[in-house]
């Protein structure tokens, strides 16, 4: 199953990924304040198709990693 991992301390909370995700599986985590002082993005945990749109929308090089397949299969 595809998934994304948000590296919390790289996210600046711009919400572009939230807005861009075609299946709406990313949200802003208002419970967390990261080291940079932002509420970071969070994967809802299901629904990711591994399309990669969030990765290319995100301005931060390190904030989002997309695993198009199961992490174990990919490795």
């Amino acid at each position: 199953m595809a998934k994304i991992v948000v590296q919390v301390d790289h996210c600046k909370g711009c919400e572009l990924c939230v807005e861009a995700c075609p299946v709406g599986c990313i949200e802003i985590d208002n419970e967390v304040l990261n080291k940079l002082g932002y509420h970071p993005a969070k994967y809802k945990g299901t629904g990711c198709t591994g399309c990669g749109i969030c990765y290319y929308t995100c301005p931060e090089p390190d904030a989002i990693i997309v695993y198009k397949k199961n992490e174990r299969e990919a490795a």
Binding site: D9, H10, K12, G13, C14, L36, Y38, G52, Y55, Y56, P59, E60, P61, D62, I64, I65, V66, Y67, K68, K69, E73, A74
Partner: peptide, 28 residues
Amino acid sequence: DILKKPDALYEVYHRKPGEDKKNIHYCP
């Protein structure tokens, strides 16, 4: 299979002054 930071960007930005050498300086 995995989309992550390309190799042509440094893993750690040693040239960047200050403590934070992992984040780029651009605004959100």
